[in-house]
Nucleic acid binder design. Structure first.
Lengths: 286, 286
DNA sequence: ATCACTTACGGGTGACGTAAAAATC
DNA sequence: GATTTTTACGTCACCCGTAAGTGAT
């Protein structure tokens, strides 16, 4: 049988055309490469090169061998990739989201239930995450829609109400206890994360006269928010997670509109039921 | 990169299920195989086995790896085959025939022109050899038909006249000088090689009342012929090749029928023109 | 006790690099 | 003289087999 290093040597020579340059490229000495080529001919029992005293080139047989060798090496690399990916998929719970709220909470919950598993998170629009769930790119998604299907498990998972975040001096703070409506603050300028998923569409629609200053980075967003008197958004979920109530520089007031409440569903492929058994029990009992 | 011996080891283990039996099958010690499996896991950075203290089995990742490894080994074997076949095709002139006459003569002529080339000979019916020429299975065919085509070279190559071979006591020997006709010996019983190609059809058609005793092996045919007084066939070509005229136990009389003469054409794919240049010149000058 | 696997250890093959020679440009 | 390839030679890596150890049947 032909060892892989010989195939690599042949492919390198075919690519770089001289023994010296090919040897340099694959970090072996030039005599070593020369010997490897001889050995390959010996194993195959076939002449692969046209040799003159200080020149060596592949003959037709050699070119054929080199192209076949390249295919084998490609396949070997593919094997390594596939095996590593498969293995990592066994040790990873991959989750798709359409809004950032659950994405801040779920990974740590998962981590508590499956301490040896890695968790990967990804946010895309509703349609994309559902497709990727079916593609098995995700093991589960947190959707804003309750999708019933024979091969899917859908469990209600929490809900999230949008809040407005205001400096204490803002006049709308008067609504703190009773809450307010989008129309009450339509026209206000908001600082907002660029990655809020479906929320963006809602606030733009309900407050068409408002301006939204999008910030890509979450850290810089909170920095800007803290040093500015502009309004921004929060939710019951983020307030709880970040203990934001303890921050005296901001007052949070809930929106009362029905559109300000997002109901989430945890959706899992039936075939992943066993893998996520503990998580499913946890969500159902919530 | 993963060396081939590691893939072989993995595939063997997958096949024989225990390290000890697999090791035996591939003629290495069991500890060596154990180490190879560890090394493979190390290279891939992945666990391939479920291990208990004295039992080891492939896990799902391992099964995936084993099946991918098997494909790679298959491809490597295929490479060896293809390269060897290609090389041997470079050193072989492969010729298809539809009759045995030229097959007895051409190889030695070729050999004289191309002393370093091997010659392979094969007899099939007209249709098959033409197809195999186009398939590149043959470099050239000796056909009984003159085929004109854009990608073919067709050169008249010799002709062959059928003779009857008789014991001197046979009454038809009287025709020795003037020749005879098929109808003159219709009804005669002939000893004949089973591999005479298109000749068989001709003699059966022209001498419908004759019986033909077919002999598979050429050597035993000539033995039977020599020890029998039955008629058999020869041709100017075989008489010349075997100096059969010097054999006193047999008289050869030509058939005068036009069907008793076969005109041959040497047909070559244009793309093989260069490879067979010397042969083409030789045939043209004949 | 036997079997199956792993770990430990010493040995030998063979792939490597360095050096040198030969040939071409 | 610089470059390219091959041959020669000594070295070292590493793969192997033997032996020993551990746990399961």
């Amino acid at each position: 049988m032909i060892e892989t290093y010989l195939l690599e040597a042949l492919v390198a020579f075919n690519k770089y055309k001289t023994l010296s340059s090919a040897a340099e490229e694959i970090h072996i000495s030039q005599p070593a490469l020369s010997r490897s080529m001889q050995k390959l001919e010996d194993i195959l029992g076939v002449s692969l090169f046209d040799r003159s005293k200080n020149k060596i080139t592949l003959n037709d047989t050699g070119k054929l061998a080199a192209s076949l060798a390249e295919r084998i090496l490609d396949q070997e690399n593919e094997m390594v990739q596939l095996v590593r990916n498969f293995d990592s998929s066994l040790h990873t719970i991959s989750i798709g989201y359409s809004t950032p709220g659950p994405m801040m909470e779920v990974p740590s919950l998962i981590n508590r239930l499956y301490p040896d598993m890695a968790v990967s998170s990804d946010m895309q629009d509703e349609e994309t995450i559902l497709k990727s769930l079916r593609n098995k790119k995700y093991n589960m998604i947190i959707s804003t829609k309750d999708i019933k299907d024979i091969d899917l498990i859908s469990i209600p998972y929490d809900s999230e109400r949008l809040y407005i975040s205001l400096v204490p001096a803002h006049p709308a703070v008067a609504y703190k206890d009773q809450g307010l409506y989008f129309k009450d603050v339509n026209g206000e300028t908001f600082l907002m994360s660029a990655k809020v998923g479906v929320w963006e569409e809602i606030v733009r629609k309900k407050m068409p006269d408002s301006k939204f200053l999008l910030q890509n980075d979450l850290d810089s967003l909170s920095e800007v928010v803290n040093s500015s008197s502009l309004a921004s958004f929060a939710s019951d979920l983020t307030i709880r997670l970040f203990r934001a109530e303890e921050n005296p520089s901001r007052i949070f007031i809930p929106f009362n509109d029905k559109e300000a409440v997002m109901n989430y569903y945890c959706i899992i492929l039936k075939e992943n039921e066993e893998k996520l058994d503990k998580w499913i029990d946890f969500v159902k009992e919530k």
